[in-house]
């Protein structure tokens, strides 16, 4: 039961984009079109889940055992960069079509703060292994949901008459504000 709570909480109630403000760069950057938003979301979910596994192992079997916690930032970021590289190579070998459609978005995931953020949150909250995995997956799913909703809104926004000074980033941020307001409605869904 607890793992379901963690998953739903990471995906909806404490949505990483709309309540923790993580992953805003890709959220603002690649939410212009629906299909790229879907691809980016799926790739990120894949990486967040793998990251949760890897950083949990590093945290518990290396950093804590040898009392190296001050190296947490450095090791996590290097592990994530390596992991993304590995995923990129794997996808290129197995599915050229998928690789082409993800293209530039894969390497960008390294600097998506959701990935490092979830690793740090999981370490901070002392999740067990299974809990970490569900937390990672939930974070990715939450990011995907927010990205897809936003891309839908922005495709409509193309036809709206936005004041000159608010075009581009400002109007997107205002929309994100409304979306965050709507997501606050999930707060009463479960009590964690």
């Amino acid at each position: 039961m607890r793992i379901i709570l963690i998953f739903i909480s990471a995906a909806l109630i404490n949505n990483f984009v709309l309540t923790y403000f993580l992953g805003l760069c890709p959220f603002l950057g690649v939410s212009k079109r629906f299909d790229t938003a879907v691809n980016m979301g799926l790739a990120t979910t894949f990486v967040t889940t793998l990251t949760a596994v890897t950083t949990w192992l590093i945290q518990h079997y290396i950093l804590e055992r040898y009392n190296l916690l001050f190296l947490q930032n450095v090791t996590f970021i290097i592990a994530i960069a390596g992991l993304v590289q590995l995923v990129e190579m794997f996808i290129r070998k197995t599915s050229i079509a998928l690789y082409r459609s993800l293209g530039i978005y894969l390497p960008l995931i390294t600097t998506n703060c959701i990935v490092l953020g979830l690793a740090l949150f999981a370490a901070l909250r002392d999740y067990t292994f299974v809990e970490s995995v569900f937390f990672g997956a939930g974070a990715g799913v939450g990011f995907t949901i927010a990205l897809i909703i936003m891309s839908g809104i922005r495709e409509e926004l193309e036809f709206a008459d936005v004041p000159e000074v608010l075009k581009g980033a400002p109007i997107t941020l205002l929309m994100a504000g409304m979306l965050a307001l709507a997501f606050m409605g999930f707060a009463g869904l479960l009590s964690v």
Partner: peptide, 22 residues
């Protein structure tokens, strides 16, 4: 103080800076 306020504030702030520079 909650998350939506942050998005709205930054959105309007960037709009204001755009207005001044324009």
């Amino acid at each position: 103080v909650l998350p939506p306020g942050a998005f709205l504030t930054l959105g309007f702030l960037i709009g204001l800076i755009n207005y001044v520079t324009m």
